[in-house]
Design a binder for these strands. Structure first.
Lengths: 209, 209
DNA sequence: GCGCCAAGTAAACGTTCGTTTACTGGAGAA
DNA sequence: TTCTCCAGTAAACGAACGTTTACTTGGCGC
């Protein structure tokens, strides 16, 4: 097939780029390093969780935090440093485990389908970071050290690591299509057939069949 | 906490960017539009599947195909057009279904843990595209129209769509940590405890419990 | 009230990006 | 042989990127 002459295909999505607005547009920002640092981290998490690492610009994050990109560099050294700070100590197993073994499946499933908090959604950040060589290593380390290993310890024999890996895969897959790449069939509330089915499968893995 | 003065944190990964080399460096490239088009698509798929959409530059793709970026535009109109062409008609359910219902779980599990082909790995491309607003819509449409709906039809009652969604989630999660964001616990061959466990869980969903 | 340090800004750095424009040259038809 | 497409190239466009430099200014200790 010869190349088409000049038929520019209609763009699938406009390059429209909504410049993030500061939360308080006209307030002259009182000088509070601690607060500013927290604002930057919140804005960064929200950006990384919705647009991924590569597509989240320093200028956008700074604007969303109500400050200047140079200040972000001053606080975190670089974009990579900001990413590290944004996910450091924030991926924990506990929110998923806060339940007895017998109802863990249902607990996790309902957690997945609860209201999202984009500024605290570390799992989405890490999943979206998969394509960025710059930060991919960090994500794999975190998943292994903070999820698979402690979960395997918590589950116990038999086949602890395989069952932990499987739980992670199922949870991440569901999370993916619920949050990062939303599919229609994952769009319902926490009382749907899908959630019940998901809960049952998770519980089966927890129980070791 | 005050910002650190000038402590640039050691970079986690060098900005080293291996400029992709043409497959045949010094060959003066014979003029074959069809072949060139195929070369570009192959290079594009490989790039998108390893670096994601945003991080795959037109120059890198063109260089890997042994041509000039302007030629890529001439053939596909734009980067988005290239992406569309790269995934069009390539995400199919059939490779996963080529088995009888009774052994489908094992079939899929082994397929996931077989040797990867980066130039044909559409599933990875779509998973990595999750963070790119430009192409995210395409990915969701493809997953729904090419995977969930036909799979639900193939599975049949009861709870066809929920089971299809669950299968997609589990497959994608495993694929994620096997291909896109490789974890140590997913690194083994096709004859591991994990693969057996995965096969069993998949089969349970296929069987409807 | 007055320094002074640090919080914060403004503007530019050099690079890379996707894309455009103008050109070159190989090969089939006459 | 010469004409003429069209595959392919070279170079540059403007915009956006992460980051750096130099500057301004608010609030606290004395």
């Amino acid at each position: 097939m010869p190349p088409r002459k000049r038929t520019t295909p209609a763009p699938l999505a406009q390059p429209f780029k909504a410049r993030a607005q500061p939360v308080k547009p006209a307030a002259p920002r009182l000088r509070d390093a601690e607060q500013t640092r927290a604002d930057i981290l919140r804005a960064a998490r929200r950006a990384f969780a919705t647009a991924g690492y590569a597509r989240s610009g320093m200028r956008d994050i700074a604007a969303a935090a109500g400050i200047t990109p140079a200040l972000v560099v001053r606080y975190f050294g670089s974009k990579q440093g900001l990413f590290v700070a944004a996910i450091a100590g924030e991926l924990a197993l506990e929110p998923f485990l806060a339940a007895e073994r017998g109802v863990l499946g249902r607990h996790i499933a309902r957690h997945l389908f609860s209201k999202p908090r984009p500024e605290a959604d570390i799992l989405t950040i890490l999943l979206l970071a998969a394509g960025d060589e710059e930060v991919r290593g960090l994500a794999t380390e975190l998943f292994t050290a903070r999820i698979v290993q402690p979960l395997a310890r918590w589950l116990g024999p038999p086949r602890a690591e395989a069952r932990a890996s499987l739980l992670l895969a199922l949870i991440s897959g569901a999370w993916m299509f619920r949050r990062a790449l939303p599919l229609r069939s994952f769009a319902g509330g926490p009382d749907t057939v899908l959630v019940a089915e998901l809960a049952a499968q998770l519980q089966r893995i927890v129980d070791g069949e």
